[in-house]
Simulated scan of single mutants.
Amino acid sequence: MAAWRRTTAPRGPYVARAVAELRSWPALVVSDTRRGAVFAVRGTEIVRQSGADEVQVRLTAPAIGRLGPYLDACDQVHACADGAWVTVEVDAEPDLELLLALTSVAIKAHAP
């Protein structure tokens, strides 16, 4: 009888690059989970992997409100059920840059 082993889905190359880059950011604390890396600032989770080529970013509802027109025009960004989070599809270089920019916004939104 073979033992069943839970494995995570392979991450796309741009998500892996994003994780590697975010690990070097001094404002972020990283935790490695079964689902992938999770990044927090001041004890609040702000970035988590949600799929092979998807990352969720907690921007906060006010930040999403300010960026709404720009986010709505971007096919790579989707609102989550929780109004504070967005999902970013990261499958090209510009998407990686967008994810890093949104992470910077998230850090600022959660800083005192």
Results as ranks from 00 to 15, higher is better:
M1Q: 04
M1E: 00
A2D: 00
A3D: 07
W4S: 09
R6D: 11
R6L: 14
T8L: 07
T8K: 13
A9K: 10
R11T: 15
P13L: 01
P13C: 04
Y14Q: 06
V15E: 00
A16N: 07
A16K: 13
A18F: 12
A20L: 01
L22M: 14
L22G: 06
S24Y: 08
P26I: 01
V30E: 03
V30R: 13
S31A: 14
D32E: 03
T33S: 10
R35Y: 14
G36S: 08
G36V: 04
V38L: 14
V38G: 10
F39R: 08
F39T: 05
A40R: 13
A40L: 01
A40N: 04
G43D: 00
I46M: 07
S50T: 11
A52D: 04
A52K: 07
A52R: 11
D53T: 03
E54N: 04
V55L: 06
Q56R: 13
Q56D: 08
R58Q: 09
R58L: 11
A61V: 05
G68Y: 05
G68R: 10
Y70G: 05
Y70N: 07
Y70K: 03
L71K: 08
L71H: 04
A73I: 04
A73T: 09
V77S: 07
H78Y: 05
A79K: 11
C80M: 12
G83L: 01
A84C: 05
T87G: 06
E89R: 13
P94V: 01
D95K: 08
D95P: 09
E97I: 06
L98I: 02
L98S: 06
A101K: 08
L102Y: 07
A106L: 03
K108D: 06
K108A: 08
A109P: 06
